[in-house]
């Protein structure tokens, strides 16, 4: 423990001195190939406990950009599967049959309104286009598995990476559930694609909503923006409880509070 603090302090000093003296050199290093890095990380991780690392939240917050250059980070960005380029409609488009049935029931009540839909499956034109519209975002099925595979091959011992990995899989699990089962983005509005909504919610240890989810600026919203926020809030509620995700109890602190950024721009052009 003391050792770790000492080392950390020493590094701080060294970093400051170096930064002051040789900034250009520092840059050049950043841009070069860093094959040895993962090895170094592992070494430090051995000696460092999660809680200590966690004491550096302010530094942590600044980190999102640099890591993308690192090989490890690739795990977060699975390459888009070639599937997205095909003209195959997403499975969720296969909702017509059920609608037809309901519609037929209605017809007996109001016979003069035809609820007849296209008797044939959607034409190639349609499926092409819808697929383009809705398939923009790569399917992320098995995200967790992919993550585990990739991370698993790189890291065997690091506890901090375990934490990171678990948080990522918690995020992925929540993301997958919301995206696959609960979010029905409003598609009717003219500006539907640009309606981004930020929703915050708190979970109990059992995975239930601890209180109603809140959308940023909801009270000031109107029209299509409010409709977009409603759809996001509905998604959070629809998906509750989140107990089926079996979120790790020992990491409750990590998933007690969740922020979702709903962004339909990739789906609705």
């Amino acid at each position: 423990m003391k050792n770790a603090l000492t080392i950390s302090g020493l590094f701080h000093v060294v970093l400051l001195v170096t930064a002051a003296m040789e900034i250009p050199w520092f840059d050049s290093v950043e841009n070069s190939e860093m094959v040895i890095i993962p090895v170094e990380i592992l070494q430090f991780a051995k000696e460092t406990r999660t809680k200590e690392i966690a004491k550096l939240p302010n530094i942590e917050r600044e980190k999102p950009k640099p890591p993308e250059k690192r090989p490890i980070r690739q795990a977060k960005l699975p390459p888009p599967p070639p599937k997205m380029l095909s003209t195959m409609p997403l499975p969720n488009q296969v909702q017509r049959p059920t609608k037809n049935i309901k519609v037929a029931d209605l017809r007996s009540v109001a016979p003069e309104i035809s609820q007849r839909e296209k008797p044939k499956p959607p034409s190639r034109y349609n499926s092409d286009r819808i697929a383009q519209l809705l398939n923009k975002v790569p399917k992320k099925e098995n995200v967790i598995e992919q993550l585990s595979d990739r991370l698993g091959s790189q890291d065997q011992q690091a506890t901090s990476l375990d934490v990171r990995r678990q948080v990522m899989s918690i995020s992925s699990a929540i993301q997958k559930k919301i995206e696959d089962q609960c979010w029905n983005p409003p598609s009717g509005a003219l500006d539907a694609g640009s309606l981004k909504v930020r929703v915050k919610f708190y979970l109990t240890q059992e995975g239930k909503l601890a209180r109603p989810p809140v959308a940023d600026d909801y009270v000031r919203m109107a029209g299509s923006m409010k409709v977009a926020a409603d759809s996001a809030l509905r998604a959070v509620r629809m998906c509750a409880p989140y107990s089926d995700l079996k979120l790790p109890q020992e990491m409750y602190d990590q998933w007690r509070e969740v922020i979702l950024n709903f962004d339909p721009s990739g789906m609705i052009g």
Binding site: L90, V258, M267
Partner: peptide, 12 residues
Amino acid sequence: AVIEIDITRGNV
């Protein structure tokens, strides 16, 4: 930590 997740897909 607050988990922050981008939701970019849904089922219209």
